[in-house]
């Protein structure tokens, strides 16, 4: 990118040449935008599909779902009119609307095309149009969670959460049973330092959350003590070899003797961030379920 400038002509070009250059550059830019637009139209649906498929696979894994099980997405929206707040939940079947105190305001059926839409943007546009938001209101999508339905029974939930980590945001999934005890967590996106903070994705760290009850998790602390060898082997065995249901039977008695999360060496900030994020998502999720559970 350096050679360019030495080649610049000192004498100003004639008006005729200027026109040619302007015209040439305009055509090139228009052509470029057209090509990119075409590629965008081609790749965008594929991208949405692949991202959704990856999420579904992860959720099925986290909740141990059978192939016939169904994963439902529930999206949350907030509408501010001045300091007045309205809360929306979009379930696969209906759009449920509450006021700030949790009183049900309205429910709307979701039409077929919106229900089947793979791109989240399509759903969001539909919700905004049906929320009664006008131009001055602040309407926004604020988060989502998933419920896994196995043979018409809720097998568990997966909550998506975000928390500021050491560098930027850490995005994660928290999988829970229907009694709000934790099955496991999965880090979806992060930018922690390689070799240090990026260990949050390793089984020996993330599996330490598995099997904790709701109350135990809300009070959980991060300790800098080293992770005991046998407990490390225990948490690492969860996943590939042993499914969660087997694992919890085997190690349920040991959980109380390991009440804390052992921080990653040299990455206490990342460890604490993930723990705080999981705690907050779980606590808020339970409060939200009090409102919305009957409409799922």
């Amino acid at each position: 990118m350096s050679t360019p400038q030495t080649a610049v002509d000192i004498t100003p070009p004639s008006p005729r040449e200027m026109m040619r250059i302007t015209l040439g550059l305009t055509i090139v830019c228009l052509l470029a935008s057209a090509i990119l637009g075409g590629f965008y139209l081609w790749t965008e649906p594929a991208k949405a599909r692949n991202v959704a498929a990856r999420e579904q696979k992860l959720i099925s894994q986290l909740l141990d779902l059978s192939p016939s099980a169904e994963v439902q997405e529930i999206r949350r929206y907030l509408l501010w009119r001045g300091s007045q707040l309205k809360i929306f939940y979009l379930t696969p079947r209906q759009l449920v609307q509450f006021d700030a105190s949790g009183k049900l305001l309205a429910t709307t059926e979701v039409p077929e095309p919106v229900r089947e839409a793979s791109a989240p943007a399509e759903k969001d546009t539909w919700v905004e149009a049906n929320s009664g938001a006008n131009d001055e209101d602040d309407f926004r999508y604020v988060g989502r969670f998933f419920s896994g339905i196995e043979a018409n029974q809720v097998a568990g939930y997966v909550i998506e959460g975000e928390v500021p980590g050491f560098k930027t945001w850490i995005r994660f999934f928290v999988a829970i049973n229907s009694d709000y005890s934790l099955r496991g967590i999965e880090i979806i996106e992060h930018e922690e330092d390689p070799g240090l903070g990026d260990q949050i994705t390793e089984p020996y760290f993330k599996n330490q959350y598995a099997g904790r009850s709701f109350d135990a998790l809300l009070g959980i602390e991060v300790t800098k003590d080293p992770l005991p060898r046998e407990w490390r082997d225990a948490v690492e065995s969860l996943g590939d070899e042993t499914g969660f249901s087997e694992w919890i039977v085997k190690y349920a008695d040991e959980l109380p003797s390991h009440p804390d999360i052992h921080a990653i060496t040299g990455a206490t900030i990342s460890s604490v961030a993930v723990t705080d994020g999981v705690k907050r998502s779980l606590g808020n999720f339970r409060k939200r379920m009090d409102l919305v559970e009957d409409y799922l």
Binding site: F39, Y40, T43, E44, A46, K47, N50, V51, R54
Partner: peptide, 9 residues
């Protein structure tokens, strides 16, 4: 765009 669409991970 291609990488984002087909190799999201």
């Amino acid at each position: 765009m291609v990488l984002a669409a087909f190799f999201p991970a």
